[in-house]
């Protein structure tokens, strides 16, 4: 009586096509990373000739050892790490605290301030007025330009506020009766309870910071403020200057077996910038998903 479609011919055909489509798309999503990786660890000559397609040949790790000798790369790595660590810590701290304060209905004009914050997600003055303001504030060629503007991230604050509002209020009330102030309640009761959502926004912010490059393009003219992302973009667009850089670093390592080429440097730098994300991603996937779902509930 019951018609089980999964046993019918069309059902099997459907499943076969479905599995194939998803298999192919999944391969498309990860093959580029794999392709780049095997090219960075294969002989640079074979790689430059286009022979490395599915598996590495003549494996070596010289590219990774030598790429950091290139002028400016270590500095860029430092800037990228700095903005990711400091920027993330500050925005997570600020989002946690402000998110908590906004759950307090007794705050003076709370709704006005909260709206003022939320509206910024839908409205911006525009790129150029923003640039001019940053310039007037002295935030060009300045490390602070990477971390100050991101301290307030409305989306993070919504996530924290929503999360705290879903907690049972009794915990906080009993502490308040014991005479604890807002700061004490926040530090000793709220923070331990909201660690899941703090982990989520930590990952969101860290990835955003690591990936940012438009702010560098706008605000930084001095090369010492360049991030890895921006340096990579320069390498992709200025082959001539990259070749010169390689020649300079090559002299110092004349003994090395595998000569670096602009191609090998580009690929190696790309891999170095991608690695941190590929490594943290599997561990934090569930946090990402949790974050987007809470965000979606609140709109």
């Amino acid at each position: 009586m019951r018609k089980k479609s999964k046993h019918s011919t069309s059902g099997i055909a459907f499943q076969a096509i479905n599995y194939t489509l998803f298999g192919l798309f999944t391969l498309t999503c990860i093959y580029p990373f794999y392709y780049l990786f095997i090219n960075t660890i294969s002989s640079n000559d074979l790689s430059a000739a286009g022979y490395i397609t599915f598996y590495p040949r003549e494996i070596h790790f010289d590219n990774y050892a030598n790429v950091l000798k290139i002028n400016g790369l270590a500095q860029a790595a430092y800037v990228s790490i700095y903005r990711t660590v400091v920027g993330t810590l500050l925005t997570v701290g600020a989002s946690a605290f402000l998110g908590y304060l906004f759950t307090k209905k007794e705050m003076w004009l709370r709704k006005v301030w909260y709206r003022m914050l939320i509206v910024t997600m839908y409205f911006s003055a525009g790129l150029i007025p923003w640039y001019i303001t940053m310039n007037n504030l002295g935030l060009t060629n300045n490390y602070l330009a990477y971390i100050l503007p991101t301290i307030i991230t409305p989306f993070n604050i919504i996530l924290v506020k929503t999360f705290i509002e879903a907690l049972p209020p009794s915990l906080e009330e009993s502490a308040a009766i014991d005479g604890a102030g807002y700061l004490k309640i926040f530090g000793s009761i709220i923070v331990p309870l909201i660690t899941p959502i703090l982990a989520t926004i930590t990952i969101f912010s860290a990835v955003t910071q690591w990936n940012s490059f438009i702010d560098t393009a706008f605000l930084m003219t001095d090369t010492k403020y360049y991030t890895l992302q921006f340096l990579l973009w320069r390498y992709l667009n200025e082959s001539a200057s990259l070749a010169a850089l390689i020649r300079n670093s090559q002299d110092m390592a004349a003994s090395m077996q595998h000569m670096q080429t602009p191609g090998s440097v580009r690929m190696t730098v790309t891999m170095i910038v991608v690695f941190p994300i590929l490594i943290i991603y599997p561990f934090f996937q569930r946090f990402f998903v949790k974050g987007i779902l809470i965000g979606a509930v609140k709109g």
């Binding site: 990860i30 580029p32 940012s212 490059f213 992709l236 580009r266």
Partner: peptide, 17 residues
């Protein structure tokens, strides 16, 4: 898991790939 990875790399990295 695997199809979500590209979302977390920057457009510069996409271009590099």
């Amino acid at each position: 898991t695997l199809t979500t990875i590209p979302n977390f790399i920057s457009w510069i990295l996409v271009y590099a790939l």
